Amino acid sequence: MDPFVVLVLCLSCLLLLSIWRQSSGRGKLPPGPTPLPVIGNILQIDIKDVSKSLTNLSKIYGPVFTLYFGLERMVVLHGYEVVKEALIDLGEEFSGRGHFPLAERANRGFGIVFSNGKRWKEIRRFSLMTLRNFGMGKRSIEDRVQEEARCLVEELRKTKASPCDPTFILGCAPCNVICSIIFQKRFDYKDQQFLNLMEKLNENIRIVSTPWIQICNNFPTIIDYFPGTHNKLLKNLAFMESDILEKVKEHQESMDINNPRDFIDCFLIKMEKEKQNQQSEFTIENLVITAADLLGAGTETTSTTLRYALLLLLKHPEVTAKVQEEIERVIGRNRSPCMQDRGHMPYTDAVVHEVQRYIDLIPTSLPHAVTCDVKFRNYLIPKGTTILTSLTSVLHDNKEFPNPEMFDPRHFLDEGGNFKKSNYFMPFSAGKRICVGEGLARMELFLFLTFILQNFNLKSLIDPKDLDTTPVVNGFASVPPFYQLCFIPV
């Protein structure tokens, strides 16, 4: 058959498939802009700032609406009420993970971030239990974070109060905490193996944040037939998995079943207990991918939040002064901060919360999916439909947070200066898919920041009023603009 005829037939089939998918069930789905064949609503979305586009569309179609990214149908949730109703009140029905062709290629359905069903539930339950087990290797997770915080302070001392970009050092600290939990080992910041790991993690975040990856996920045929950065992403992930597998083999040879040292040991012990169960989800494949998931999810998000926190503290020296006064009063100079201190430091706690609220790190979270046909607000959402959640619409709700575009710790303080919780605080998402490392991340943010401010004054290279804190939105995360500062020993 003539190649031209084959091409026309293929394009015609794709067009018909697109029209059929977009028209099927439209009477039951939430409203939304009319999609174009094949490309859907992509032309109506700013790929570099999806969150802003969703906010604009919500003003037209309401808090629940339908979009098509290519052939992929998505239902968008915008605003606290619908997000709570879906992710919390109907948590089980909305607990699936959205379709990610690239991740599915890399992870093969294993791990904790992109798995679904029984596998996801069992691996998540085990990971939560293990991360909360403060007795691994007779050292609590808090001990590990405190140790890394001391190392971080010593690295900052080496800058000798000269101007520096904190990106690298602030990236090393949370990565080392995860390494300590998974591998029972922290690395020197100049260790070549550690630097290679950091390089792969950072490069992957840069790649994932590009519009090209959005295109690959919406048109998965590209993955096999086109060159691009997605190939580098898959190569980096394969490198990390190979490295983790080597460490798993080392653990198998040296493990003491009665004295687990780290996450890998705990997983291997669980595998041993379930070795007679042919349906067990505790396999080497799941261990390797879960460890890679924890490394990827637990490094860049925390380091970016820390980097943004220091920029905001530079911009608002009056806030920094209040935090340091609270540190001096509650902790002093002669001991290290600990998590028990947080309950006695409402202002510092409010500042950490406000940093996370203000920066809105992951504006749309990772997409969910419905696990069955769901009736939601008089609409029928078919099983498997991807759910896109606007966390921006919750964290920047102007009824809950007056002047949401302003950095103001009073958003989390009552009139008496006591810490005030808010149900709208969802930087880790909400419901059954809430970030498994939430507790660890909150511990790291509090301890790293208090250790830094206990030991250093922060000095800006320019007038604080002239510092730009506008986030650089890159399609996946909101990151701070480049800046330098000086760490002046107190």
Rank of each mutant, 00 (worst) to 15 (best):
F4Q: 02
S23A: 14
G25M: 12
G27Q: 14
G27R: 10
P30C: 03
P37N: 01
I47M: 13
K48V: 07
K52P: 04
S53H: 04
T55C: 15
Y61I: 00
V64Y: 02
F65V: 05
Y68A: 07
L71P: 15
G79E: 02
L90E: 07
G91C: 10
F110M: 12
G111C: 03
I112T: 05
S115Y: 02
N116S: 11
R119H: 08
K121Y: 08
E122C: 11
I123R: 01
R125S: 12
R125I: 07
L128D: 12
L128K: 15
N133K: 09
R139M: 11
S140K: 08
E142L: 06
D143F: 08
K160I: 09
A161F: 06
S162W: 12
P163N: 08
C164I: 12
C164Y: 08
F168S: 14
F168P: 10
F168H: 15
I169C: 06
I181V: 14
I182C: 06
D188W: 05
Q193C: 11
Q193L: 10
K200D: 06
L201P: 03
L201I: 10
N202P: 04
E203K: 04
E203V: 07
S209W: 08
P211N: 07
Q214N: 08
D224T: 10
Y225M: 10
Y225G: 06
Y225T: 10
G228A: 05
K232Y: 07
L233E: 02
K235T: 14
E241R: 14
S242L: 12
S242D: 11
I244V: 09
E246N: 15
E250K: 11
H251I: 01
H251G: 01
S254A: 09
M255Q: 06
F263H: 01
F263V: 04
I269Y: 07
K270A: 12
M271I: 12
M271F: 15
K273D: 14
Q276K: 12
S280T: 13
E281I: 14
E285Y: 06
E285A: 12
N286T: 07
T290V: 10
A292I: 11
G298N: 03
T302W: 01
R307H: 07
L310V: 08
L311I: 09
H316E: 06
E318D: 14
E326V: 01
V330C: 11
R333I: 13
P337F: 01
P346I: 04
T348N: 01
R357V: 00
I359V: 08
L366G: 03
V370C: 11
K375V: 11
R377P: 00
Y379T: 04
P382D: 02
T385M: 06
I387A: 03
L388K: 03
D397P: 01
E400K: 05
F401V: 01
F401K: 00
P402L: 12
R410V: 09
G417F: 09
N423C: 15
M426I: 15
G437V: 03
L447R: 03
L449K: 04
L461Y: 12
I462Q: 14
D463L: 09
N474T: 12
G475E: 03
P480C: 14
Q484S: 12
L485Y: 05
I488G: 05
